[in-house]
């Protein structure tokens, strides 16, 4: 079973998207803040990371930067999933090697699930 680490502080989003991905057969692990997310990324070695940007304790971009500097997990695909749409954040995230940058408000739950499946190479 493929593992997804979902770093997101909104409990509602954790529930809806997390549950939808579980229904598709993924093993979804939840982290509610940046520090916890980074710790689980290192220990759990997920196949994909879904990362929010505005997070308690450690900002999403810092989490991404540290993931990219860690030799064990630096190749893990990271999808940014946020409601921030500033050019600065998008550029920085892509510069740091984010696979895709998704603005939550622009996608339906189904679209996001489809994007995740595509990033995982599943159909």
């Amino acid at each position: 079973m493929k593992k997804i680490l979902f770093i997101e502080d909104e409990a509602a989003i954790q529930k809806t998207l997390g549950e939808s991905l579980r229904n598709k057969g993924y093993d979804v692990q939840a982290a509610l803040d940046g520090e916890d997310g980074l710790r689980l990324a290192k220990s759990g070695k997920p196949d994909l990371i879904l990362l929010d940007l505005i997070l308690p304790k450690l900002h999403g971009l810092d989490v991404l930067e540290r993931i990219r500097k860690d030799k064990d997990i630096k190749e893990t695909p990271v999808i940014i999933l946020t409601n921030l749409e500033n050019v600065g954040e998008v550029e920085r995230a892509l510069e740091l090697g984010a696979t895709t940058y998704l603005v939550k408000a622009n996608y339906s739950l189904e679209d996001v699930v489809a994007k995740v499946k595509k990033a995982m190479g599943d159909r």
């Binding site: 909104e10 509602a12 989003i13 529930k15 809806t16 998207l17 549950e19 939808s20 229904n23 598709k24 409601n83 921030l84 500033n86 939550k104 408000a105 339906s108 739950l109 189904e110």
Partner: peptide
């Protein structure tokens, strides 16, 4: 910009919760 962001968060939660309730799997 800030207000839009603040309104987007609950709006996404609303949409996604509704979509989840309507999904076939659910």
């Amino acid at each position: 910009n800030i207000v839009s962001h603040q309104l987007r968060a609950p709006l996404t939660n609303l949409r996604w919760a509704t979509q989840f309730l309507l999904s076939k799997e659910f």
